[in-house]
Simulated assay, not measured.
Amino acid sequence: MTNDTNSTPTLETTPIIATRGDRWKEMATRQETLLIAVYVIMVLAFSLINPRYFSTASFGNILQDFAPVMLMAIGQTFVIITGGIDLSVGAVLGLSGVSAALAIRTTTESGMSPALSITIGIVAALLVGATVGVVNGLLITRVKLAPFIATLATMGICMGTTLVVTGGVQVAGAPKEVVLLGNTRYLEVFTVPLFVVLGVLIIAWLALSRTRFGRHTYAIGSNQFAARVAGINVDRHLMKVYVIGGVLAAIAGLFVYFRLGSGSPASGRGGELQAIAAAVIGGISLMGGVGRVTGTALGALITASVLSGLILIGIEPNAQQIVVGALIALAVAVQGLSRANSRT
C-alpha cells in the first residue's frame, strides 16, 4: 500500500510539469513574444548609436509616426487575412488629408467657427476613404479584378487627383485648433490621435477574435470556395473589408494633417509599403487566413521605430524605403520557413 500511494503523486504530477513546460515553450516561440524581443534589441542598438533615441521626446515622436501607420496596417490586416491586398491606402491617406485641408480652409475663410470647419473637414476625408473603399470592393467583387490590379488602379487615380486639386503644393490656412488637436501631448507622449488609434486597435482585436465578422474574415482567406458553400456572402463581406481599409486610411490622413497643420500632396507616399510591412512583420500571412491584429500592432511599432532610428543615425530618407522593403522580404521568408517546418 505504501509503494502504491507513493507512486501515485509521481504519475499525476509528471504530465502537469510537462504541460507547464510546453506552455512556456509555446509562449517563448509565439510571434508576439519574438517581436517584443526584436523590438527591445532594436531599441538598445539605436540607443547605443545615438543616446537621444532612448528619450521621452523620441518615444513621443515615434508614437506620432506610429499612429497613421497603425491605422493603415489595421485596414491592411483585414484585407490580407481575406487573401487580398490594398495598394491604395497611402494614396487615400494623401487625398483624404488634402480634402480635409481644402474643406477646412474654405469654411474657415467663409467665417465658420473652427469646430464646425474641422467637423466638415473630417466628414470630407471620411467620405473620400469610404468612396475609394467602395470602388475597390466593386472592382474586385463585380468586375472580378484581382485585388492587386484593382487597388493599383485606385492608387493611381487617388495620387493623380491629389496632384490636380493641389497643383502639387501644400494646402495651408488651417486654424490653430487643428495643430493643437494633433500635437497637444498628455504625459509627454500621448496625443488625441494616438488615443483614437488605441481605441480602433481594441475594436479591431475584438472584431477579429470575438465576432462572427472575424470568423468570416478568416474563413474567406482560408478557403473562399468553402466559405461560399458554408453560406457566407463573400462579396458583401469583401466590400465591408475594403471600405474599412479606406476609412481607416482616411483617418490616418486626417491625423497627418492635424500634425502638420497643412495638407501635403506628398503625404502617404510609400504608406502602402509601411502598412504591408507592419502586417507581414506582425505575422499576417500574405496567403490569407492567418494572423492577429496584436502582431500587426507590434509590426507597426517596429516599422515606425526603425524609420525614426534611421533618421537619428543619419540615414537619408530615400534609403529608408530599402530597409522597409528588406523587412518585408525577411518577414515573408521567415513565414515560408515556418510553414515548411510545420509540414515536416
Rank of each mutant, 00 (worst) to 15 (best):
M1T: 13
V69H: 00
I313Y: 07
I17E: 12
S338K: 15
K240C: 01
A101S: 10
N136Y: 02
L248K: 08
L127D: 00
V128I: 13
V192M: 14
A146R: 11
S58V: 01
A250Q: 10
M27V: 15
M112C: 05
S209A: 13
P265T: 08
L163F: 08
Q64I: 14
R210F: 12
S342Q: 15
R30D: 10
Q64M: 14
L298H: 06
D4C: 00
N50Q: 11
T106Y: 09
A174T: 03
E177M: 09
L11S: 11
L127V: 12
P15M: 04
V247S: 05
F46T: 06
V179P: 00
E109K: 13
I122K: 07
G283K: 10
I302F: 07
N223L: 04
L11N: 10
S209N: 15
A277Y: 08
G309S: 05
S262M: 11
A340Q: 12
G167S: 06
L126S: 03
N318T: 09
I104A: 06
F225A: 09
T154H: 01
V197P: 07
A207Q: 09
I41D: 00
G199I: 14
T151H: 04
G160L: 07
I81R: 04
V189Y: 13
T108V: 10
W24Y: 15
A18K: 15
R23W: 11
P114N: 09
A45P: 03
A73W: 07
R215D: 12
D65V: 06
A146F: 11
L48R: 05
I36S: 03
A297Q: 06
T10Y: 11
R236C: 02
G129F: 01
S308Y: 07
S305W: 08
